[in-house]
Design a protein around this nucleic acid. Structure first.
Lengths: 225, 225
DNA sequence: GTCTATATGGCGATAGAC
DNA sequence: GTCTATCGCCATATAGAC
């Protein structure tokens, strides 16, 4: 809590070993900011609250991020990096991409703050003058395009259910995911998001859930469904 | 703009014909408040902004509603009345209820403010300390129960698609609706909500879309679909 | 790099005149 | 029923000391 321990993380012990300290501080600020923006949204979240959780003053915080909007952008950008490295949404293998959706949904259930953040912010950013409006517009376009590609590939393999169009499937999958998060945040007992998504994806396409691509008869733990 | 026209709406011209005027003022306030809360959410929306749109002072506004929370509750309550009288969600006929969903979605596309309001507020009210948290928790429970009943009835008639459970169908339908609204608010060209819901309901159950229940050949304006 | 102090302004709500 | 005036609070952001 106190920052009197100057010897904790001097990774680069050479000249000016303060780099690591600043980096750690920035990370701590971003962690706190994510929490605050998740709990109250961007507009209601305050720099004061963020600074307090980190244990510094508002002015100290603004030394690391010039203003509130910059802080928000840093939070979103860092979050995106982490998601991208976790889920291969732009994979060439549509099965892998859709498996990634379920995997990410399952993981998110263990990190409620992130779900809160995106759920609250995406609704708030619906307003055209919101600082994250462009970010979310673009993000949805990108995600739709990625799913469109996946479902398009599945369609060409004849693995889409009859009457399902790739365009519609992409929109519906995203909508479903978002909507399930709202209900989950209001009452965590009411729905298992990963389960529901898994089931609905099955209703859209014939997806290989096991990673039995190269190795035919590897590990089948889910064949009893 | 000016309120010098005392003779405009004296509906009850007897003693104290001011009732109608007050009622009109309250309605105007609620209209403006809906807009403001829709655009920025509850926390970011200000009484100042509402008062300005109505053309009165903040103190004048607070004469009609004691505080900000009361104003929000009045807005939500009035909106609920209108929705309920429009859509028979608790109808005994599951077909009528699901037709109502599509009809309401189509109507909402003509009143973007209402969609904004619920989309923004439901996400914001995810926070446990939000003044509308209890309202939305309850609202989702009620809606889920209503849809559960509809899909349950359809199930007993053998009209649910194979593998569809009434519980899951209720949750999914609501989630889909909510999620589609987010995408629609970010880009109105990307999706027709009523269309998408119609299609997805078809994927869940075998619903009678024409109202050919009691009167066989009455008025068929929609049979060309 | 972090602090204190401060500028500037919006907010919800109240008191009391008319 | 509506106003003006005001209170007290919290917000973002800046200036300058240490």
């Amino acid at each position: 809590m106190t920052n009197t321990s100057t010897t904790t993380t001097k990774a680069t012990r050479g000249a000016r070993g303060e780099y690591a300290k600043t980096r750690k501080r920035r990370e701590a600020i971003l962690d706190a900011a994510l929490e605050v923006f998740a709990e109250g949204g961007y507009r209601a979240g305050s720099l004061r609250e963020v600074a307090q959780r980190v244990g510094i003053s508002e002015a100290g915080l603004l030394h690391h991020f010039p203003n509130k909007v910059a802080l928000l952008e840093a939070v979103l950008s860092r979050r995106d990096d982490r998601s991208r490295e976790m889920v291969p949404l732009d994979s060439d293998d549509p099965h892998a991409a859709l498996r990634g959706v379920v995997a990410l949904a399952a993981y998110n259930a263990t990190v409620p703050g992130v779900v809160e953040l995106y759920c609250t912010l995406s609704a708030e950013a619906t307003a055209p003058d919101h600082p994250a409006h462009a970010y979310f517009t673009r993000r949805y376009e990108t995600t739709r395009a990625a799913f469109l590609k996946s479902f398009g590939t599945l369609g060409r393999q004849g693995r889409l259910r009859p009457g399902v169009s790739p365009e519609r499937a992409a929109i519906v999958l995203i909508a479903l995911w978002d909507g399930l998060q709202v209900q989950w945040l209001l009452d965590r007992e009411v729905v298992d998001i990963a389960d529901a998504l898994h089931e609905c994806i099955d209703a859209l396409a014939d997806v290989e859930w096991d990673e039995t691509d190269a190795t035919p008869a590897a590990d089948e733990t889910e064949d009893a469904e």
